[in-house]
Amino acid sequence: MSSDTILLSHGSGGKKSQELLKFIYEILGDVVINHGEDSGVISIDMSCYAMTTDSYTIDPIFFPGGNIGKLAVCGTLNDLAMVGAVPEFITLSLMIEEGFSFADLESIVRSISSELKKTSVKIIAGDTKIISRGKIDKIFINTAGFGKVIATNAISSINAQPGDSVIVTGSVGDHGSSIMAYRNGFSEGLRSDCANVAPLIQVLIEAGIDVHTLRDPTRGGLASIMNEIAESSGVSIELYEEKIPIRDSVNGVCDALGIDPLYMACEGRAAIFVPEDQAKKVIEILSDNELAKDVAIVGFVKEKSEKPKVYLRTYIGARRILPLLSREQTPRIC
């Protein structure tokens, strides 16, 4: 480890995060069977199932477009969808600071209920802990998720293939930009994209699309997950700046804060890798859905490589590397 203590950057989704995970994996050894996927996949009685877990510590807990409760549900369901699973159950654990408002708790729990009622997902177990005042910041949520994998092929970060098209289901950077703008007092009408994308993925799989890789670009944004996929699959990836949907308001906030929007978190988007000859069909299937109205082909997988890189072809035709960042730009974004 390059540091003797845990830093905020260890939770950034960048180089420090990989360093921390490597440290943990090396200690745990072969008791860990899932490295780097949003969910783990297990086989039971000839069927495959997915499990995931996550914790939510976002600040502020209420933000334009959602709150920590909605985020916890959508984030959990999205993680299951990223391995081709249909969510069925979640667990819900609440860690609440002494003195927290009952009115705020009610709003958060109602959001959880509202999101789940849009689906067939049920809460199968839960826990509540009250922590002394000042020992936790308002409220944290932990979840686990379980679902049945309906994809017939393995959807994994190791399966991106040369020639694959890279598709994003909508504009990128909305969540991270809205949170940072809200914190800095210039919201600009921005709203988080926080949403459940599992129905979009289910439609693609049921339509017979040969999905190779799926990721939701949360911490570290689109650029970071592209680097993770490139490294896991041993391929280089090229993105086209002019094709990546980014709202003008997101660009404005990022310019003001000095942050590249490609590293801003999304909470209601998916990056999809499919064979080039199926990319247009994906666009046709998804574009009628309001959640994916800005779906776009944004790049492609290049050659296999022992030194994988992610490249951005800029508006002026130049080509630059999109690296993994080593510092935390947007702490407690989810």
Rank of each mutant, 00 (worst) to 15 (best):
S9I: 07
S9M: 08
S9H: 06
S12P: 00
K15I: 12
L20W: 14
N34C: 13
G36A: 10
G36E: 12
S39V: 10
I42R: 06
S43Q: 07
I44K: 02
D45A: 07
A50M: 00
D59A: 07
I61Q: 07
F62W: 01
L77E: 09
D79P: 05
A81C: 04
V83Q: 10
T91S: 13
E98Q: 14
F100L: 15
F100G: 04
S101D: 15
K118P: 03
T128F: 09
I131H: 04
R133A: 09
K135D: 08
D137Y: 11
K138A: 01
N142G: 06
K148C: 01
K148F: 07
A151N: 08
T152I: 09
Q161P: 01
Q161N: 06
S165A: 14
T169W: 10
D174M: 12
S178E: 05
I179M: 06
I179H: 03
R183V: 02
R191V: 15
S192E: 02
A198N: 11
V203R: 11
V203S: 10
L204N: 03
A207E: 15
D210H: 13
H212L: 12
R215A: 15
D216T: 10
L222H: 01
E228Y: 14
E228T: 10
A230P: 02
E231H: 14
E231Q: 15
S236K: 14
G258W: 05
Y263I: 03
R269L: 10
E276H: 04
K280R: 05
K281R: 05
K281A: 07
K281M: 07
V282A: 00
E284S: 04
I285T: 00
S287Q: 05
K293I: 05
S305E: 00
E306Y: 03
V310W: 11
Y311G: 08
Y311I: 11
T314A: 09
I321C: 09
L324Y: 10
P331R: 02
